[in-house]
Amino acid sequence: MLYSVLKYVILGPWLRLIFRPKVEGREYVPDVGPAIIASNHLSFSDSIFMPLMVKRRVTFVAKQEYFTGRGLKGWLTKMFFVGTGTIPVDRSGGRAAQAAIDTGLRVLREGNLFGIYPEGTRSPDGRLYRGKTGVARLALESGAPVIPVVMLNSDKVQPPGKIIPRIKRVRIRFGPPMDFSRYAGMAGDRFIERAVTDEIMYELMELSGREYVDVYAQKVKSAQAKAARSEQADTPDKPAAVAA
């Protein structure tokens, strides 16, 4: 109920009016039956704009911390994610990846749409990074088609670190469904899962026109954070002002 209110009464009409989304290939999303919506990830707003452009509900997973915040901000954040159909995943104990897959399989077996960012995190610089094989595991175990979709300019609409989006026209492009039934029964084979994942990432690269980097985005982010800490540690403290 809350999802419908947010999408069709509160968020949807206003976001359409202000950001005037331009969507290509929306007809590729099936009207019925399970499908995996695999997207690049440029901005926090990706999980807002793309589901609004699909007639059916698209379920994502998010870290449990988004649902347990305190105060007014915590309550508003929780209500937003609940209202947009997001399911919390417990990241403790290193089971986040398996928990996300289990949730995705349940959503797909119920005949619904499941959204996933194969890169696993937002791109640190707008380029497309190596995909994690969870998307392949979902496709092979569920038999559901993969619908590739790219956010073409969401990093310009809401750059990393910015809370308030810029007023720009949002552009989204869906691609034809990808069928991996030829690999039926091969879930768990890491070579097959890597091949399927790379095929999906290649399609996202073609649709987006973005440069592809065959490295995990999280590794790049970790290196950037480490470099920033080192630079901060190496910066000498400013000398105190000397009284005249």
Rank of each mutant, 00 (worst) to 15 (best):
A62S: 13
G69S: 12
G104Y: 01
N112G: 10
R122K: 06
G94Q: 10
T68S: 14
A62E: 09
T77C: 12
V82N: 15
T133C: 07
G94S: 13
L72R: 12
G93L: 04
E110P: 02
I101D: 05
A97I: 00
A96R: 10
L113P: 11
F60T: 07
F67N: 09
Y117T: 13
R70G: 10
G126R: 09
P124L: 08
G131Q: 04
R95V: 08
G126A: 01
R70V: 03
I101S: 11
G83K: 10
N112W: 02
A96H: 06
T77F: 07
Y117C: 04
V89N: 11
K132L: 00
L108K: 01
R109C: 00
F81E: 04
K73T: 10
Q64P: 03
G83A: 09
L72H: 02
R122N: 08
M79I: 01
T103N: 11
F81M: 11
K132P: 06
T121F: 04
A100V: 04
A99E: 10
S123K: 01
N112M: 07
T103Q: 09
A62R: 12
P88Y: 02
G85N: 06
R91G: 10
T103H: 11
G85C: 07
Y66H: 13
G93A: 07
L76P: 05
A136W: 08
T133D: 15
F81W: 04
N112I: 01
D125L: 07
G94Y: 09
I87Y: 01
A97R: 15
A96Q: 07
L128W: 11
D102R: 15
G71M: 05
W75H: 10
G71C: 02
R122H: 08
G74R: 03
A62Q: 11
V89A: 03
A136M: 12
V61M: 15
T77H: 07
T103R: 04
A62Y: 11
V107H: 05
K132Y: 13
L128G: 00
R70W: 06
Y129M: 12
R130K: 15
L108M: 03
V89R: 10
F80T: 03
G69Y: 06
G111I: 08
M79R: 15
E65R: 02
